[in-house]
Every structure is written in C-alpha cells, then in structure tokens.
C-alpha cells in the first residue's frame, strides 16, 4: 500500500516539475528560445514624434519573413503601444508589391501614401527614408525606388526627386535612444 502511494507521489512530483518547466518556457516567450535557427532580428525605421529623426527599432521575426515584403509589412505595423516612436507613413497605407532587381528594390504602395500624406519636406523625407533604410538593410538591396498605385513618381509631395532609386540615408537617423 505504502509503496504504491510513494510511487504515485514521485509520479505526481515529476508531472508537476514538467508542468512548471513548460510554463516557464511559455512565459519567457520566443526570444529566449530563438538562440537556434527559428528567429532573426531586423530593424524597422520609425520616427520621433517631433519629426526630427528616424529611429532604428528592433523586431524579431522568422527568417522567411526577413524578406523585402516581410520588412515592409513589419514597418507598416508601426510602433508597439509601449514605444514612444511613430510611423512616418500615412494612415491606411498598404503595400501592393515589392521586387528586387539588380540591387534595386521597387516597392509599390496604395494611393493612401499620397492622398493621406500631410506633405512638408520633413514629412516627405521621413516617409521615404523609413522605407528606403528599412529595405536597404537586406544584403540584396542597395537602392530603393518608391511607386504609388503602380506608377513611377516624379516626387511624392513636391520636394524630393524620386525619378531615380535612392540610397539609404543615415544622417536622418538618431544614433542613441
């Protein structure tokens, strides 16, 4: 009788230990188990609220997502609620497509990119380089050209020359934050 009870107790403790370990693993989230191959760290470029700079912000995504498309999707999600940064792209902007040819990423956005854009040199610069800098972290992307509604642009809001692809600009980036 006592032997059976002890056996049951040991089994119960073993089970409890397993449950606790499982719970701990669950709580610690994916970053602690990402030491292997399953996760990768990328940067998206958001902006400060006063529009003075771009800010590189870390995101952890799956390696398959670390593509031009995945990066823009991650950028369009914008800041997390606890982050002080803002998305310098107009509300409601969607990405239609992105393709990389000979080191140039051609990315096409929906009409909101222009129609809901507040304008201004500052507004235009931060919008454009949030996209360019985010894409240019990929080794296959050296330059980026922005399209809207499938059309090539002379400019987005009347200041920047967008007729040719742009290289990333780190002079707009806030270094320490």
């Amino acid at each position: 009788m006592g032997k059976v009870t002890r056996k049951a107790l040991v089994g119960l403790i073993f089970l409890l230990v397993i449950i606790v370990i499982w719970a701990l693993v669950q709580r610690s989230g994916p970053s602690s188990v990402s030491t292997g191959l399953s996760q990768t760290e990328v940067l998206i470029y958001l902006a400060t609220r006063d529009g003075t700079s771009l800010v590189p912000v870390k995101r952890t995504i799956s390696p398959e997502q670390a593509s031009p498309q995945g990066l823009i999707e991650e950028l369009l999600k914008g800041p997390r609620p606890d982050e002080p940064w803002v998305l310098p792209l107009p509300a409601g902007t969607r990405m239609h497509s992105v393709a990389v040819v000979d080191g140039v990423a051609y990315v096409d956005f929906s009409a909101e990119m222009i129609e809901f854009h507040p304008g201004g040199t500052t507004g235009e610069l931060l919008t454009v380089y949030a996209v360019v800098n985010t894409l240019a972290q990929l080794p296959e992307v050296e330059q980026v050209q922005i399209f809207v509604g499938g059309r090539e642009l002379e400019t987005l809001m009347g200041h920047l020359d967008l007729r040719t692809p742009l290289e990333p600009d780190f002079s707009l980036v806030l270094e320490e934050h």
Binding site: A47, R49, D50, G51, T52, V86, L87, P88, P90, A91, P118, G119, G120, T121, T122, G123, L126, H159
Partner: peptide
C-alpha cells in the same frame, strides 16, 4: 519657399536645406 508638415502635431519650427 515652403511651409512644413509632419503626421504628428508635435513637429514645429524653422529649417533650411
């Protein structure tokens, strides 16, 4: 000669390029 804008109303001031 331009007047500036940003998506958020915290942005203000004068700049020259």
């Amino acid at each position: 000669i331009h007047a500036n804008a940003f998506r958020f109303q915290e942005a203000c001031g004068t700049e020259t390029f």
